[in-house]
Computed example of a mutant assay.
Amino acid sequence: MNAKSTALVVIDLQRGIVQRQTAPHSSRDVVDRAKKLADAFRKAGALVVLVRVTYSRDDADRLKAPTDAAAPVSVPLPPDFADIVPELGPFDGDLVITKHQWGAFYGTELDLQLRIVQRQTAPHSSRDVVDRAKKLADAFRKAGALVVLVRVTYSRDDADRLKAPTDAAAPVSVPLPPDFADIVPELGPFDGDLVITKHQWGAFYGTELDLQLRRRGIRTIVLAGIATNFGVESTARDAWERNYELVFAEDAMAGLSSEAHQFAIGTIFPRIGLVRSTDAITAALGES
Rank of each mutant, 00 (worst) to 15 (best):
S26Y: 00
V247R: 08
R115N: 14
D58W: 02
D68S: 15
V48L: 02
E208C: 15
R52N: 05
T54M: 11
L223Q: 10
L213P: 00
P66S: 05
A284M: 11
Q118I: 10
K99I: 07
K4P: 08
E208G: 15
D157H: 01
F248L: 06
R132T: 09
I268N: 14
F41Q: 05
Q113N: 04
A236G: 07
R132H: 11
L37Y: 12
Q21P: 12
L209G: 05
K135T: 14
D39M: 05
F41A: 01
T98M: 02
T267N: 10
D80S: 09
I268A: 11
V9D: 01
I116R: 00
A254S: 11
S257H: 11
D138N: 04
R276P: 07
Q113W: 06
L37G: 04
A34K: 01
A170E: 12
P24H: 06
D179I: 08
A70S: 12
V51F: 05
R219T: 15
L63D: 13
S74Y: 00
N2V: 12
V85P: 01
T228N: 01
L114D: 12
F81P: 10
R161M: 09
A65Q: 13
L274N: 12
P165Y: 00
L136P: 12
P123V: 09
D167E: 13
T278Y: 03
R52D: 03
I196P: 01
D111W: 03
A260V: 12
I84Q: 09
Y55P: 04
I281Y: 00
Q19C: 12
A3T: 13
V9P: 15
A264H: 00
D160L: 00
E259A: 14
P165R: 00
I265S: 04
D39C: 06
G286M: 01
G206E: 08
R15F: 13
E287W: 08
V75P: 04
A252G: 07
Q113D: 02
T98W: 01
L256I: 10
L77D: 09
A260N: 08
A168G: 12
R156C: 05
P86H: 02
A284V: 04
I11A: 04
K36P: 08
D251E: 07
L246K: 03
L50V: 02
V51K: 05
V30M: 05
P90V: 10
L8A: 04
P171K: 05
R215L: 13
A71M: 11
D59H: 14
L209P: 07
A40V: 04
Y154T: 02
T98F: 07
A38M: 03
V96A: 02
F41H: 00
A133Y: 07
A46D: 08
T54S: 13
E186K: 03
D179T: 02
K4R: 15
P72T: 06
R20A: 12
A60N: 10
L274W: 11
